[in-house]
Structure formats: C-alpha cells, structure tokens
Nucleic acid binder design. Sequence first.
DNA 1: CGGGACAACGTTTTT
DNA 2: CGTTGTCCCG
Length: 666
Amino acid sequence: MKPYYIKDERRESKERTFSIPYKDVLNPAQYEAVTTLDGPLLVIAGAGSGKTRTLTYRVARLVEGGVPPGSILLLTFTRKASQEMLRRATTLLDERCEKVAGGTFHSFANFTLRRYAQKLGFESGFNILDRADAEDAIDLLRARLQLNVKGRRFPHKRTIANVFSKAVNKAVPVEEIILKDYAHFMKDAADLLRLCDAYQTYKKKHCLMDYDDLLIYLKALLEGNQDVRERLSQTYGYIMVDEYQDTNKLQADIVRLLAATHHNVMVVGDDSQSIYAFRGASFGNIMDFPKIFPDTKIVKLEENYRSTQPILSVANVIIDRAREKYTKVLFTQKKDGAPPALVTAEDEDMQAQFVAQRVFELREEGVSLSDIAVLFRASYLSFDLEIELNRRNIPFVKVGGFKFMETAHIKDLLAHMKILANPQDPVSWHRVLLLLESIGPKAADEIFQGVVSSGAGIRGLATIEPKPRYANAFNKFRQAMADFETDHLPVAEIGTKLARYYQPILEKKFDDYPKRAKDLEHVLAIMDRYESLERFLSDMALEPPNASIDNILATDYDDEQLVLSTIHSAKGLEWHTVFIISALEGRFPAAYAARNDEEVEEELRLMYVAATRAKENLFFTYPIEIFDRGTGMVLSRPSRFIDGISEDILEPWSLVTDYQGNEDVW
DNA sequence: CGGGACAACGTTTTT
DNA sequence: CGTTGTCCCG
C-alpha cells in the first residue's frame, strides 16, 4: 500500500509515514474525525454514514501513531459491536488493535469494580443480579415488609423493578417516576419508598449488584476516590464512546469523570436514532457534551453510503414527522433503486406468506439469505412468520426478545454456581433450595441464615440440621455441593457435576425436559471457554448469548440464514433487503407505548432506525382486521408513521390469492 | 407450612 | 402462552 504523508500543518515539521492511506479512503468529515486525536470531539453520525468505519480507522490511527492500545478505551452498546470494530481495526493495521480495552459500560464497570470492590465495602466481591433476580429480591422484600396483603392491589414486582431502575437511570427521585409514569400507584408511594430503601440495604448487605448498581458504584468510585480517578484516567488516556445518544445521565457522568484530567474523549451518536429513552437514556447528552467540555470540536457525518435515494426519501419523510426537529440532512450518491413498498395483507398469515415467498424469490435471484432481515417492534410479532419459515424450510436466526439465559432451567443451574461464587447470595440460595421437595420460602430462609451464620461459606451446609420433612432431598443437595468444597475445579467440570445433580429435578419439574436438557448441554459447552467461575457468571449476566439455543447450534454449520430481529437489536446493522412487518397502527406504535408525546416520538425514531437499515429493498407490511384484545378494537390502518405517504415515494401493494391458493402481488 | 391445581392476567424494547 | 396469584388440602 502506498504510504500517505500527513499534510496537517501542525505536524508538517515531523512528517510521519502511515501505512493506511487515511485521506484516500475517508471522506473529509470522516477524515477529520479520525485524525482529531487530542481534545474533546463530538461526531454526529447519521444512519449509514460510516460511523463504524470512522471509529475503526480512528482506533487504527491512534495505535499507528504510537498510542499504547491498552490506554484506548472503546465503550460501545454491545460487546459484539466493540469486538467487531477491533477485529476490523486489526485487519486494517495489525493485532495490536486487539489489545484495546473495549466493551459496554456495564462490562467496563464490572471489570473495574472487581478491582476496587474493597474500596466500596464489597469485601468478598459481588454477584450480579439480572433483571429476574432483582425482581425476585424485590418480591421477597415485599413479603418481608408485609406489603402483599390480601385484597390490596399492589404493583407487580416487574413494575416495581421498572420504577426503581428508571429512577436510577434518569437520576431522579422514585416519587417523581411514580408521579409521572405511574400516577395510579401514588397511593402506594410511601410503601414503594420503604421497599426501595429495603432493596438497597439488602443488596449492600449481601454483596449484590443489579445492572444499575454497576454504574452507580463506578460513578461513586470515581467521584469519591481521587487516587482511583487519576489512575484510571491515566490508564485510559483516550476514550471513545459509541451510540452516545443512548447513554443515560450516569453514563455521561462516568465519561466526564474518566476524561476529567486529559479531555481526550470522542463521542459518536445520532439524536434521531435514540431508542432507549424508556430505560433512562437521554439524547440530550449529545447536546450537553459541548457544555461539559467547552473546547469540543463538532464533526457531522451526513453522507449516507448505505441506502438508495428512494429508501432515504421514505426515511426522511418519517423523521420529518417528528415534533423534535433534527438538523442533520442525509444525502446519498446512489440515486437509483427500487421504490419502497407498503404491502397490505389480509391477515397475519398472509403477511407471513408474503415475506416467506418474497425471501424465496430473492434467494433465487442470488441474494444471500443472511443479507435479508425481517424487523419488528416486538418479539411476538414474528411468531406466525417463524411457523411459515419452518414449514418452507427456510433457515433463520432470531435475535432479540426471548433470552434463553433467562429460562427457568438455566437460571436454576446458574443459581447453583452462583452460591459457590458468592455464598452470601440469598437470591440464588432461595432459588436453589426451593427446588427441593418440601422446602418453601420459610425453610429456605432458615437454611440460608444457618449457612451465613456458620461463616464457613458453602461448607456451612454441614452445620445444618434438616427437618425430617425435607431431610432426604436436602441431604442429596448437600452431598452434591460437598464436591466443591475443595475449590478451583474447572468451570465446565463444576457445571457438569451440577447438571448431573439437577437432572432428576429437571425431569420432575418440566414435561419437556429432553429439550431443556439439551439447553443445559449447550450452556456446558459455553463454560468450556472459561477459566474463572466469576468471569463466566459475570458474562452470562452482562452479555448473555441472545439468540435461542437451536439457532446458536445451527450457526455452527450453516452461515446462510435469514435474520429475524427486533428493531432494537438491529441497531447499527444493515441488509440488502429489509422487511418491517406488522407496521400496523396499534402495534407500531403499540397502544401501550403511545401514552404521551415523548413515547410516540421514540416509536417514530424506532421506525426511522428500522427503515434506514435497508440498502436496496425496503418493504413495510401490515395485516388488516387484527383484533386487539387490549382495546377491543379492530386494527386495520398502517402505522401512523407511514400512513398517507405519497405514492411515488412509498408504493402501495395489495396481495391477491391465485387459484392455486398461492398469494401473489400485483 | 408446603404443594398442587386452577384461574386470571397483561402482554415491548435491553444492559 | 407463560407466568403470577389464589385457594384449598394434606
């Protein structure tokens, strides 16, 4: 490759040679973003404008310029995103790029907090509560505070967890969340506050952190310990944050603190693609960034390299319907292309038939299945299609929605491992003990207390005197756990032994145990890759494999699969052809997600994100005559976000069924 | 006090 | 549809 000489005047005197011809392969805006290395930098990157490319080249540029890879911190939305970027940077430059510290805010927090746990009063490490664990803990405390009195309608544990989490992520008091989003529970506000206090105390006491705590404690660590802050700031001399529009207040604070001493921080985002406000994200962070770092340089990436003009035109109409006006204007040089279509189907079955048929045809035309995606608002909206695809033997992988790590049998197995990692963890103890015959909440609590007060960790089980009622089951359990007293078995071996112990329980508990046993085997295979139990458990909590088991297994031998994905999980990705199914008013925006203007706006941005995933073909489909149980109404209009768009921008299609029963298009 | 049977419910999106 | 709440029996 031809060497490229930097023309930047400031560097002219010490002209350097780079192996990558940055200026030739990047557009001027991208080039500026890639070569602005020092000082605060805000990049507003429209959909398909080469954001990932820019980040990748910037990593390479930093490393090539002599910055030690370990001092670059790349914070992304998913671990997959950072891995992908670093892999690409490695291809561009060399394997030094693999040494860059990359991951999500949560995984970075986990990593850092494990080092400094004692500073925060977590003497023996901590276990991470996933969402379901957190709900269980809340439920337990609700019972303990006697808030579940008969005849009283108290919020669902799921709702409660939501309220607490939102308060943390938006950095506002719990009362305010209740007042604003759950006004009908105002009468319970006092009790909810008590419960919230109890929950915080409980987690602290038992060395537990939920997702939000990871961020809270990281911020607290940085704020309260100047030495730690300086050391971390020194370690990570260059910070890059992707998807900045989807960070929340806490995350913005963490970035501010980390970069406080050197200000070498680059954030990339697009306010019109903010889709996580529901969990406390604030695209205001983008606007506020220059206020936090006054000498911020702003770069806008507005040229779209992904989509054809017809697709971009529809996307622009959609985003124009927002009340919030976004200043960025996307343009493309790909002028020609098929116009996007709005496809009306008689019912959900017909919609599925259409998509499957069309996928089949595209496949015949030579489009790879893996270059086609079907996107939807919510996971359940693809059920009909999944059946149809199975019927036609079209291989697919489903991303988002259902997480098999959260299924009961896998949580059962992991709970056994968690009590080994942290014998203080009452949530896991509770879960494990309740599996035993004749042990309920009461007995489980007694046993747990006994183990804790023995002070001997898992060995404390030996000191328990089981009641005759459950002695048999308990002794089996105790015997199984005794195997691990000697410590430091390989993760997979622990898992295998526990799975063997758990098998009879599985068979008793679930009718479909053969299928579930297969799932467990797969989890065991994942364990094989881990040295440390703690590490395994953290990863399973923070970055669980998010496709279902069958699909993961399929991926091993078949790489050509149609992608089915929630729009949230499709963020940052692109395909040759995109179907957005059930673009139906009442489903998208969903009736329950359209309670106020802000929520509707977010739904609209979601539709925009979905539309801008397409490179060549874009189909919106919607079934009519859908009965909505919630409202008791029949849904038959297309989503308000695409309804009434001029026909030369969005072509209306109707489906007809031919005499053989095959539907077709005219 | 635990367990099982049964009814009711509410139902996104994710670290 | 699968989970959660309730009731009643052992």
